[in-house]
Design a binder for these strands. Structure first.
Length: 444
RNA sequence: GUGACUGUAGCUCAGUUGGUUAGAGCACCAGAUUGUGGAUCUGGGGGUCGCGGGUUCAAGUCCCGUCAGUCACCCCA
């Protein structure tokens, strides 16, 4: 009688994390929390599941189609959140009196989208959001740029580029060209400029959006301005003269670039890109996208923007805000192709081998002693051959092995083996902790 | 959601016009080495050829479906 086995499998777009990538993922989350907190953002959390009406219609038609939606056992129409911004809008409206404004929060959590998968595109993935709501101030937009920058450099990236634009500038142009009623289509086409080039966008504008050839040309001349941000802004200003919307957008961008540079953000990492539009319907002002120079195909790994009315569907109180989101799993997919994921699958640098089965008491005590000193330590569970235990230590990526048998116990000392250097030393217990610290520092 | 390509051991792959018991390297386990890892040698375990159906005397190989991955579109983190 054999039990029928269940095939172990995960759903399309849903993945397991083994220790090495899981540790990389946790490390990035730690960095994100640290950077967000350094700017004063507070953590919040919200449920994975929401009433469907809370989520529907907030991110545009496309996100509605991608909802994981079902009826729960109580007959409620529910759905898994597809981002963290819409639940935040609900949260803000619901708790406005408790949180007060301006309010800055960060939120690290999984979201779900029922779309087709690809490398770096999954149906379940973690976003690391941060937002500032309750202020229109451009200072918040500028700070958002600084956070994105500091976050990526803290994670360990040098070669990335933050592309910035402002919807007001685009809207101003569309107003001038008489295309305001077709803005969604125009912006969608424009957003593909980097991918399909000028001719592709031109064709899409004329065919799908039904612009005239002249309008399409003007949109593209506008979007393809190149040069330093200041040069582009000067040109934009000329082109948008007399249009209040566009002029405001230009002014805000001008201040953003000036202040960011003044604050020490390397100018080569921030680009003014008039073609980026972002699909999400709720953006109204500054928009951000971040690309890895060595893996642009993976797409934006940190995007966001300003919205002028986050919670309008939940409250009559107007809540403007600005924020962005790091796509953790997408970033991790890129890091994997770069070989940036460390091989070690243990978070502990120290393994205490179990040499003599009758001295479990001593191995257990010394393990605890090291932990109390802040040194992550694993005590091997079985008294197998030392060779086996060292092999295990090597494979898992431990840095040091602590070894003691009858000779060491008689002499009151511990052997410490440095697995990388291959060297071994012997110290009395009183010096053990300092010795281990020194070894870890010297070879890290 | 649409289209294309791919799917053989944990991983990377081989497998001749369909033709017996499906192979290699690496990894894994054991031993050489009952007080010391990475190397070497010896031996070993592991595959319903993603899954289901069809064609055929015969299917890893051909056809259909399905699941999964990748790529493009769409959209986006």
């Amino acid at each position: 009688m054999t039990k029928p086995l269940i095939t172990p499998a995960t759903l399309k777009g849903f993945r397991d994390y083994l220790p090495a990538p899981a540790m990389a993922r946790e490390a990035i989350m730690e960095v994100a929390r640290r950077v967000y907190r350094s700017y004063g953002f507070s953590p919040i959390d919200t449920p994975a599941l929401e009433y469907t009406e809370v989520l529907l219609g907030k991110g545009g038609e496309e996100s509605d189609k991608q909802l994981f939606r079902f009826t729960d056992n109580g007959g409620r129409d529910v759905a898994l959140r597809f981002d963290l911004t819409v639940p935040f809008a609900r949260f803000a409206a619901q708790h406005l009196n408790e949180i007060g404004v301006p309010f800055k929060r960060y939120h690290l959590a999984p979201v779900w989208r029922g779309e087709n998968t690809q490398r770096g595109r999954y149906r379940e993935f973690v976003q690391c959001d941060f937002d500032t709501i309750g202020t229109d101030s451009n200072a918040a937009d500028i700070e958002t740029l600084l956070v994105i920058h500091d976050l990526l450099s803290a994670i360990g990236f040098e070669r990335f580029q933050i592309r910035v634009n402002n919807r007001l500038v685009l809207n101003g142009l569309l107003e001038k060209l008489g295309l305001a009623d077709r803005s969604a289509g125009v912006l969608r086409a424009l957003d593909k400029l980097h991918k399909i080039g000028r001719d592709g966008v031109l064709a899409e504008l004329c065919e799908r959006v039904q612009t005239t050839g002249e309008q399409a040309d003007q949109v593209l001349d506008f979007a393809q301005l190149s040069g330093s941000p200041v040069e582009i802004l000067n040109r934009l200003e000329e082109m948008l003269t007399g249009n209040a919307t566009g002029e405001l957008g230009v002014a805000r961008l001008r201040e953003l670039f000036q202040v960011a540079t003044h604050a020490g953000i390397p100018p080569q990492r921030v680009e003014l890109d008039v073609s980026i539009a972002r699909g999400l319907d709720y953006y109204t002002g500054t928009i951000y996208e971040t690309f890895l120079i060595d893996d642009p195909k993976i797409g934006s790994i940190c995007s966001g923007g300003r919205y002028d009315n986050l919670a309008g569907l939940f409250t009559s109180q107007k809540l403007p805000g600005v924020g962005a989101s790091l796509g953790l799993d997408r970033l991790l997919a890129a890091m994997e192709t770069f070989g940036m994921i460390a091989q070690a699958s243990t978070p502990a640098p120290v393994l205490v081998t179990q040499f003599d089965a009758t001295r479990v008491d001593e191995y257990t005590r010394i393990g605890r002693l090291l932990r109390q000193a802040g040194l992550n330590t694993e005590v091997f569970p079985d008294a197998r051959g030392v060779g086996k235990q060292l092999k295990y230590a090597d494979k898992k990526g431990f840095r040091l092995a602590v070894i003691a048998g009858s000779d060491e116990f008689a002499a009151g000392v511990w052997q410490v083996k440095d697995l990388r250097a291959g060297s071994q030393s012997q110290v009395p217990e009183s010096q053990l902790i300092d010795h281990i610290r020194t070894l870890l520092q010297s070879s890290s």
